[in-house]
Design a protein around this nucleic acid. Structure first.
Lengths: 222, 222
DNA sequence: TTAATAAATTAGGTTAATCTAATTTATTTT
DNA sequence: AAAATAAATTAGATTAACCTAATTTATTAA
């Protein structure tokens, strides 16, 4: 079995690999894991010995297939536990991250699959992030940032790229919830402020920063 | 926060303290924790430094009030998660121990309490062991071993002292379940074999070893 | 009450995961 | 292309939790 630390490294490498291309830098890992660079170098060597990553000195790391499997398994756990916390225990979407960071390291494929069934095989976690299936397959989403939509275009709000409680709370306060249909009514040239229309017809003004943190499934205007 | 290891020591000390009197020996801990005696000595010194135990060189340890609080908290977690696994995920009572050993170390009082509510504030885990309340109060049970009952006496089966899957399976196979009413029909002098009558009137023969692992609430014959 | 046995501790090491300070390797900038 | 800057690595330590071998302290038996 892998240690919590190894699993956290694997998850971090996976996410950085997704976000910023193929090879992951020591410094990037040090930053997200909140440790110092020499600790990362050290750990990567150990993990390379276990064939979890391929490590190229002074260049960075990639996950091996084995490493990717473990990483995706942890992400599956994390997201399923988040659904449990929100759907079953009544937590709010901005409260579950730290708890899921603990629960994701429970080692039992069988438990994960039973939990999945208990939750009704959810496709996404409370933030809209897709849940990998038992084979580690993660459905490719075609969601785009709201900030890429042009005047008059529409979409359905399906996820966030900023998972901080502060941002999630802002969305709650503004009445913007997953599944909402959103139409771009206006984009202010000067500061890229968006005026959007929510399903309930109320117009809302959001900053570029917000528009750039919301994922939508674009509705093609046929 | 305490490490998993510390928590496991605390739990072990608590259980040995309950079972065998007040002071707990290094060797007893080494045995249940499956480590060697010098490791225990080492750890106990560290834990004494944190005021979790009082350590008397060459004599043994006791929990401090602080240590007891932590230990009971872990036991509460463990038993609540066992209820979750059985009641919600469909596990059998002989399958949940190892998983609960992992889940018990999730650090969140709030999660524990929400779980408790979700489960309907159960009083006992699937093996009949009482669940401490949020204040660490464990109801004193007045259950006795079936092996202490005399001919003709009755009781309700409320718990086990042997939690091994082998024993639990044996009970399943024999149709002996928590809550069953049991009457002692005969006790063989020669080998202390018990003949018992279950609620459904069927007579069953059990060994002394089995009778000595079953807890019952004795029904006083008025 | 001394001798034998059992239990516990000390001494000295190991491993995973971290750190700081110093050095080396890469990448930019001039 | 050389100099400056940034990133990464090496060297050497630390801490928690464990180990084995040797020694000391308790307990039990003769």
């Amino acid at each position: 079995m892998h240690s919590f630390t190894e699993e956290n490294y694997l998850k971090a490498i996976y996410k950085l690999q997704e976000a910023n291309g193929l090879i992951v830098a020591t410094s990037a890992l040090a930053q997200v894991l909140e440790v110092h660079a020499p600790s990362v170098t050290d750990m990567l060597k150990r993990m390379a010995g276990k064939k979890l990553v391929t490590y190229q000195k002074s260049k960075g790391v990639k996950l091996t297939e084995k490493g990717r499997q473990v990483a995706v398994g942890i992400i599956r756990n994390h997201r399923l536990w988040e659904v449990f916390l929100v759907d079953k225990l009544g937590y709010k979407w901005d409260e579950v991250h730290d708890l899921a960071e603990q629960l994701e390291h429970i080692h039992s494929e069988d438990l994960t699959n039973k939990l999945d069934m208990f939750l009704g095989f959810p496709k996404a976690d409370p933030h809209g992030d897709p849940i990998p299936d038992a084979n580690g397959i993660l459905p490719k989403s075609k969601a785009v940032l709201l900030s890429t939509l042009k005047m008059g275009e529409r979409g359905t709000f399906t996820g966030v790229t900023d998972h901080t409680p502060a941002f999630l709370n802002y969305l709650d306060k503004s009445g913007i919830s997953l599944g909402n249909s959103i139409k771009v009514k206006a984009i202010e040239e000067f500061d890229q402020t968006y005026t959007i229309q929510l399903k309930d017809k109320k117009d809302t003004v959001i900053s570029y920063k917000v528009a750039n943190s919301l994922l939508v499934n674009k509705v093609e205007t046929t």
